[in-house]
């Protein structure tokens, strides 16, 4: 089995989701007499490229021509297909990030490959090729058979462990012969919320709802998140009322997340909210209403006033962190 992994970078640094994807691919390769090629696209230093070997890539290829210096679904997907064709790959792994979701379907169409997104399991190859994905924003799972000879999987971030399985991987510079005529979009501005943990990839998430009363109280949420190194999220009404940016809205009509820890403060736990967060490994609900539905979905709960509880938790978190340091 020849596996290709899209090694996504941001500003020249590989993302955590990239290491997850390579670790995932390396485990499939190990069990199926296969090998893994990590495909980097864009401007990445040789030193950073070599990092990919640490997680089990046998071979690293880099497409670094000018045309790849800013992101384009058209050009990037063609580079992946070029690598897949040159190497006769039969499995292509992409992380289900915003960029991954843009590239994966285009690559699949270029290669006439069956595609499954939101994958949360290793493939079961005993009888064909079957993977599990989440559906209904995490309310259920579906098992999907892929029947084509080339397959594309977009795996969910935070679903697979990063494993150290070092290989000495050769780095090869490739050129897919893609010119600027292949790119129609032109980026005019990129604004990143700097210094913050990215919600879609965060391991810890502190989230709050209408129970926080107003945007002026969010410093309490941000403070706790900072101490723990967590990302912040919110319920739909909170973003609808512009207390928080829309990018923080989680749930069935917002982002679906899968962190290790989700702390919900002053959120009732409506079915649409739970849909987007119920795959979190551990859930904590803090709510003054003992009947709040969130307690049914939570592992830990505190019934009481958030304005009383938050300072206590924040102090404890501070003490815990300084003890760890």
């Amino acid at each position: 089995m020849k596996i290709i992994v899209f090694a996504e970078n941001q500003d020249g640094n590989f993302k955590k989701s990239t290491f997850e994807a390579i670790s995932y691919a390396a485990q499939i390769a190990a069990n199926n007499n296969g090998n893994v090629t990590a495909v980097s696209i864009g401007n990445v230093s040789a030193e950073k490229l070599a990092e990919l070997g640490k997680y089990g890539a046998d071979h690293i290829v880099s497409y670094a021509q000018e045309v790849f210096h800013s992101f384009s679904g058209e050009a990037y997907s063609k580079a992946i297909s070029h690598a897949a064709k040159s190497l006769n790959a039969n499995l292509i792994i992409v992380s289900n990030t915003y960029s991954g979701k843009t590239i994966a379907p285009r690559t699949a169409a270029q290669l006439s490959a069956g595609i499954v997104s939101g994958v949360i399991s290793f493939p079961d190859m005993q009888n064909g090729f079957k993977v599990r994905r989440t559906v209904f924003s995490g309310k259920a799972y579906a098992d999907v058979n892929v029947n084509t000879s080339i397959k594309v999987l977009a795996i969910t971030p935070n679903s697979f462990a990063i494993l150290d399985q070092p290989k000495t991987a050769a780095i090869e510079i490739m050129d897919a012969g893609i010119g600027s005529e292949n790119v129609h979009t032109k980026s005019t501005e990129i604004a990143r919320t700097s210094g913050k943990v990215v919600l879609t990839e965060a391991e810890l998430v502190i989230s709050a709802g209408r129970g926080m009363k107003g945007p002026e109280n969010w410093h309490m949420i941000e403070n706790l998140a900072d101490i723990l190194g967590a990302a912040t999220a919110c319920s739909k009404p909170v973003s609808d009322m512009h207390w928080r940016p829309h990018s923080e809205h989680v749930g069935q009509t917002g982002i679906t997340i899968k962190p290790n820890l989700y702390i919900a403060i002053g959120i009732s736990g409506a079915i649409q909210h739970l849909a987007g967060v119920s795959s979190s490994k551990v859930i904590v609900a803090i709510n003054k209403d003992p009947e709040a539905p969130f307690f049914k979905a939570a592992d830990y709960g505190i019934v009481g006033d958030a304005f009383e509880i938050l300072p206590l938790i924040t102090e404890a978190a501070k003490a815990f962190k300084s003890q760890q340091a």
């Binding site: 006439s112 490959a113 069956g114 595609i115 499954v116 079957k130 559906v135 995490g138 309310k139 259920a140 799972y141 579906a142 098992d143 999907v144 058979n145 892929v146 029947n147 084509t148 119920s278 795959s279 859930i283 609900a285 307690f295 049914k296 979905a297 939570a298 592992d299 830990y300 709960g301 505190i302 019934v303 009481g304 006033d305 009383e308 509880i309 206590l312 938790i313 102090e315 404890a316 003490a319």
Partner: peptide, 26 residues
């Protein structure tokens, strides 16, 4: 080129462990 063969609901969560407000830091 893909076929969904079956669905499954997630296993129900175990009981929620409640912590007293006074011990919130715990």
């Amino acid at each position: 080129n893909t076929l969904t063969t079956s669905f499954e609901l997630p296993a129900p969560k175990g009981a929620c462990k409640l912590i007293d407000v006074a011990d919130a830091g715990k």
